[in-house]
Design a protein around this nucleic acid. Structure first.
Ligand SMILES: [Mn+2]
Ligand SMILES: [Mn+2]
Ligand SMILES: [Zn+2]
Ligand SMILES: [Zn+2]
Lengths: 141, 141
DNA sequence: TCTCTAATTGCAAATCTTTGCAACTAAAAA
DNA sequence: TTTTTAGTTGCAAAGATTTGCAATTAGAGA
């Protein structure tokens, strides 16, 4: 029925129960080609079934993130979005002026990551970092 | 009466009006030696006067940030804190496990900042960046 | 000083998200 | 298959922050 048997199996093994709501939410996230907010996931869920509840969506997305089956990105100003793991590592350059998000190579932070580890013992997670600033268009325009 | 005449003058020149509420909020932020949440500013305000309202605190802090007279730091999970400009540039290493915040030298991102500018035309503001990860204690303990 | 006007305040209501809890149910055990 | 029980759901209520609006007021100008 589902297209994500691996995630479901893993969750079951960790003591979670697989409900139809969870299956559908996992489907939506896993096959999304872009970041989705809880609200957007909820709307897509509604198109499939009436058994959909925003509270459950919030809880399921949080759980998927905690368990390592979804990415979570806090864009600030209360904008939290989720993406599938397939959405590989990269930086988000968020323009404070036009709100556009440019995706950038995250390897340019490899040096910084190493230094943080060396000097502060801090294991930073920079694979999906958001950086705020002003994009070229907004600076020139 | 106030100890921050410069900020008040500048605000007046920009068309803002100086109310006693604003003066007190500016005092609290400008003389704070650490980051404060809106709630914390509100509590400090209450100690001074009964003429204090949480809505006004939210609006004033936002205004001070927009006008460049306060720093604003979104630590994620809805934790937004404000600091005076005197709180110089540095990184915040936020531990996802114990929630502690380590302050780190921001110059170790100078290279990355330059590359973002060169390759993406993006003028990143990295002077008060929050980086999430796991601190040494949490990794060892 | 007095008048006038647009900015500000504080309340209430609206939003967005989280939390408590009783009813329900997945799935392990009998 | 039936029983059991601990995890899950969905509602309602609580929190946190923002917004609309009428009353108030800072500060410019007469
Ligand atoms: Mn992305
Ligand atoms: Mn700091
Ligand atoms: Zn832009
Ligand atoms: Zn820690």
């Amino acid at each position: 029925m589902t297209h994500c048997p691996t995630i479901l199996q893993a969750l079951r093994q960790r003591g979670y129960r697989i409900t139809s709501q969870r299956e559908m939410i996992i489907e939506i996230i896993a096959h999304s080609d872009r970041h989705l907010s809880a609200e957007e996931v909820f709307h897509r869920l509604r198109e499939k079934t009436s058994a959909s509840n925003l509270t459950t969506v919030y809880r399921t997305l949080e759980m998927l993130w905690v368990e390592g089956f979804a990415r979570r990105n806090d864009l600030g100003e209360g904008r939290v979005v989720y993406a599938p793991l397939a959405h590989g590592p990269h930086l988000h350059l968020v323009c404070r002026s036009c709100n556009r998000v440019i995706e950038a190579d995250h390897s340019l932070l490899a040096g910084a990551e190493h230094q943080l580890r060396e000097h502060y013992g801090f294991q930073a997670d920079l694979a999906h970092l958001n950086l705020f600033g002003v994009c070229q268009d907004c600076r020139e325009g």
